Computed example of a mutant assay.
Amino acid sequence: MSNPPKTTVTDPAAPLTDEVLHYTAFTTSPVGGNKAGVVLDASSLHDTDMVAIAAELGYSETAFVTPGPASDSGRSFTLRFFSPKAEVGFCGHATVATAVALGERVGEGDFDFHTAAGHVPVAVREENGVLKATLTSVEPRVHDTDPADVTETLAGLGWQAGDLDAALPPRIAFAGVRHLVLAAATRERLADLDYDFDRLLKLMRRLDLTTVQLVWRESATVFHVRDPFPVGGVVEDAATGAAAAAFGAYARDLALVPADAELTLHQGHDMGRPSLLEVGLVPGDPRVRVTGAAIGIRPTPAPQQ
């Protein structure tokens, strides 16, 4: 599969399309990152249409875009996100994909995205010939976990208590949607993921979790992460921007990193879709920045009947 042009800008006056666009986010390679559908003009679509489109695509999320509140800039949009199963309050990789898709059509710059989780500013810039988007999360929150819920999560994962890194205690972190953060003591434990889909799904629905973010700390600011996503009908996400933002809040809340840290998260390697997520913390601002590239890809042909 060839790589399409990354920074082509079409006529800014051209109307945005209701065509389903295919992108992969947090990568510069069509064989990496997390795939997302993007519909830049979803004005004529009903909820049932959006669910059907997301289900047909089979990506972990698809973004549907409509004009946002009145804005002289023409860069204000409302985004809704659908997994193959249902609407999701916020999705980071589909936000990055949408921002890059808009950047290719109307040019680099700042966008205002309005989501069910709140206002998410996004800046699109070219770097070394590639468009990258930086989203700024809603204000995050970090909560203690119930030990019984952690025990049940470990049972669903097939992990033991001794598999956890005691220096990174379990927490529920929110930066648009909720994630349970669990840290593996070894890279081998993180790599060996074979969980009970239905058991973990039941727990996650009860706790209103979007993913369980499994992490392993390689160095002071470099982490490897995996995100089971059974509530979306997907076994695992290849790159999870919302969880990356939540993890940034988690790392700051536990004083694991400096207040101005730049974190690198590697995701998707164990499932053959390597992804790179950059997480930025700014002193005095509780919000978290998540940066990644995205490129257009050709859709995978539907299986022959």
Rank of each mutant, 00 (worst) to 15 (best):
K202Q: 11
V181M: 15
R199G: 10
D163G: 07
R189P: 05
A133W: 13
P170I: 12
K132A: 10
L164D: 07
F113S: 08
E188V: 04
S137M: 08
V124R: 03
F197Y: 13
V138R: 03
Y195A: 02
G156K: 03
A184Q: 00
Y195M: 03
L164Q: 13
H143L: 14
D196V: 02
D144T: 14
V181P: 04
F113M: 11
F113I: 06
A175M: 06
L180H: 07
H114E: 10
A116H: 06
D165G: 02
L201Q: 15
V150Y: 04
K202C: 02
A161R: 13
N128W: 03
A116I: 05
A184H: 08
P121S: 07
A117F: 05
A117G: 02
L180M: 15
I172G: 03
L190P: 07
P170A: 11
E126G: 02
L203F: 13
F113L: 12
A133M: 08
G129P: 08
V130I: 06
G158S: 11
T115C: 08
G158V: 10
D165E: 13
V142L: 06
G156W: 06
G162I: 03
D146T: 07
N128P: 00
W159K: 04
L203Q: 14
V130A: 07
R189F: 04
T134E: 14
W159G: 03
D196N: 14
V122E: 08
V130E: 11
D192L: 05
A161Q: 14
F174K: 01
V122K: 05
A148K: 11
L190F: 09
R187C: 01
V181I: 15
F113D: 05
A175E: 05
R141P: 00
A148C: 02
R125K: 12
K132D: 01
Y195I: 02
P121K: 11
A183P: 11
A133S: 08
D149L: 02
R171W: 06
L131T: 04
V181R: 01
